[in-house]
Amino acid sequence: MLSCHQATRLASDAQERPLTFKEKVSLKIHTMMCSGCRNFESSMNTLRKAMQGFASGDHKDITNNNTKKTMKKHE
């Protein structure tokens, strides 16, 4: 049985390389029972899509102007 730390590592690695059959099965079994890791796994896809959006630079002007303001807001 994987720990959550190990499960998140596999979910991250899945973005980098094809998981082995054994890894896929262990991750699947873990996420079936663990909502935290299930959510983490799906956030990996969101993160990659977000980075693609970020890299495309469509929002460039928005973020350049507002970053400092936001950082203050979150302090």
Binding site: K49, A50, I62, T63, T67, M71, H74
Partner: peptide, 15 residues
Amino acid sequence: FKQQQFWVVFETCLN
């Protein structure tokens, strides 16, 4: 992704 504020937060997190 459609909300501008999301990208501000996203960049803050990267930083």
